[in-house]
């Protein structure tokens, strides 16, 4: 390989998570004319009184510029009509397109769950393996913006329990790009969960295309004393907690599963085999959370590795309050994660 080719292959830019997603959508739409984007205000401004062609590009600007490059036949503004957005994406996927549908907030899943749970997830199985549903549903998850009980939930655990769906949860711009490209090219339906408090996080992201396979966890920090498995935004907080503990000589290994369906338990078992201790961190409510699922899998399949009880860190069994200081108390914090790790390290 020539020097210039190497330079080209590693060329990267410092991007926000928002821009990494935007760049991926554009790259995938360029390489495959069957990729379409549809959702509420993915362009924005249809039917308004100004002559602004693209008034929004998504409520958080994630789809900005796509309509200009790909036109309104491929970047489709819909009414506020989640059942029809997701249902139409399902039908389009069954018949030869590769739609990326936007379910603006995951909280809105209540008005389109049938399409996700009974239709999209089951087409392949109930049609005897003869249907393909290459569909990506992009959706925002998570608390932290004071958006209140119906715009802040982390509802990915129950989706991860539905056979037929895949669920991806990027924690940083690099993973967001590779996972989204994989989601769009994947022949199975994928729920792609973007944490709204991560949109402005930045990282170096390669300019070229790349894929991150599903079901491969990332070890974001190697350590030997304790394993922390964290998801989405919680990965950052777990790494912050690990930084603090490092000052006290505690070596924390942090694992980001990146996808919860499929879920890479092998990486977690291997890590717990090394450390003997486990903390699971999840912004979801505690009952049937991913924190519970991962803890249960380790307790059932790798009990002999454990030297101390597993500690789970989740949101409480409450809705997400709009009240800023209560919301702050709701979301697991770096301090709580640090305290939980210290508890898990106590000798029994």
């Amino acid at each position: 390989m020539s020097t210039s080719a190497i330079e080209e292959s590693v060329a990267s830019s410092n991007l926000t998570l928002r821009d990494a997603i935007n760049q991926t959508l554009a790259q995938e739409m360029r390489r495959d004319p069957t990729v379409i984007v549809l959702g509420e205000d993915v362009v924005g401004g249809r039917g308004g009184t100004s002559d602004v062609e693209e008034a929004a590009g998504g409520t958080f600007g994630v789809t900005a510029g796509l309509a200009e490059e790909f036109g309104l036949r491929r970047v489709i503004d819909t009414p506020i009509t989640e059942s029809a957005i997701i249902g139409a994406a399902a039908g389009a996927a069954l018949t030869g397109l590769r739609p990326v549908a936007e379910l603006m907030f995951i909280d809105f899943i209540g008005v389109c769950l049938d399409q996700i749970m009974n239709q999209i997830a089951k087409f392949r199985y109930m049609f005897g393996g003869k249907a393909r549903t290459p569909l990506t549903i992009r959706t925002m998850v998570g608390a932290g913006l004071g958006a209140g009980p119906q715009h802040s939930q982390a509802l990915y655990p129950f989706l991860s329990s539905i056979p037929g769906l895949k669920v991806a949860l990027p924690s940083n711009p690099y993973d967001a790009k590779g996972l989204l490209a994989q989601a769009i090219r994947d022949d199975d339906p994928v729920i792609f969960c973007e944490h709204k408090a991560l949109y402005n996080d930045t990282a170096d992201v390669p300019d070229g295309e790349y894929l991150i396979p599903f079901g491969e966890a990332a070890v974001t920090r190697e350590g030997s004393d304790i394993t922390v498995v964290a998801l989405s935004r919680m990965v950052n907080l777990a790494n912050e907690a690990a930084d603090r503990l490092a000052k006290d000589g505690v070596s924390v290994e942090v694992i980001d599963p990146r996808t919860t369906s499929p879920l890479d338990m092998d990486t977690i078992y291997d890590s717990v085999g090394k450390t003997g201790r486990l903390v699971t961190v999840d912004e979801s409510n505690p009952v049937c959370s991913m924190a519970s699922e991962i803890a249960s899998a380790v307790a059932c399949e790798a009990f002999e590795y454990l030297r101390t009880p597993i500690v789970k860190v989740t949101a409480p069994h409450t809705p997400v309050p709009a009240t800023p200081h209560l919301e702050q108390a709701y979301v697991p914090s770096t301090e709580r994660i640090e305290r939980s790790i210290r508890r898990a390290l106590m000798d029994y």
Binding site: I36, I76, S83, A84, I86, G87, A88, A89, A90, G91, A92, A93, L94, T95, G96, L97, P99, D114, Q115, N118, Q119, F123, M126, F127, K130, A131
Partner: peptide, 27 residues
């Protein structure tokens, strides 16, 4: 269901098929 015949499935959820058919029309 029979994808080769353009039959996108009988559907046991009443009212579920019209949005899916709209998607086929979008294709």
């Amino acid at each position: 269901a029979d994808m080769e015949k353009g039959m996108l499935g009988a559907n046991a959820i009443v009212g579920a098929a019209p949005p899916i058919a709209v998607g086929a029309a979008l294709t």
